[in-house]
Computed example of a mutant assay.
Amino acid sequence: MPRYDRDEIARRCGHDSWQQAVEATAHLSQQEAGRVLGVSHPTVRVWRAELGVGVAVARPSAAERKAAFLADPGDPRHGSANGYRNVGCRCERCTEAWTTYQRERRNA
Rank of each mutant, 00 (worst) to 15 (best):
E50Y: 08
Y4F: 15
G74Q: 11
N107M: 13
T99A: 13
G83I: 00
G52C: 09
R90H: 08
A58V: 02
A71G: 09
E104G: 11
Y4Q: 14
R35P: 09
E50P: 05
R85P: 02
R3L: 13
H15S: 10
R85D: 02
E64W: 02
W18I: 15
Q19D: 14
D7R: 15
A63H: 01
C94D: 03
P42H: 10
G38R: 09
A33S: 01
I9S: 13
A71L: 07
A58Q: 03
L28S: 00
M1A: 14
W18K: 11
T100S: 13
V36M: 08
H27Y: 00
A62H: 06
D75P: 04
G34Q: 09
Y84V: 01
W18M: 14
V55Y: 06
M1P: 14
H78M: 00
G79C: 01
F69R: 06
A62R: 10
A24D: 08
T100Y: 11
T100I: 13
P60Y: 01
V87A: 07
S80G: 09
G88E: 00
T99Q: 13
A58G: 03
R6F: 12
P76E: 09
E32N: 02
Y101S: 04
F69P: 07
T43A: 15
R35H: 11
D16V: 12
D7M: 14
R77H: 07
R48W: 03
M1D: 14
D7C: 15
E96Y: 10
P73S: 12
G74C: 10
R93G: 03
S29G: 02
G83Q: 03
P76H: 07
R3I: 13
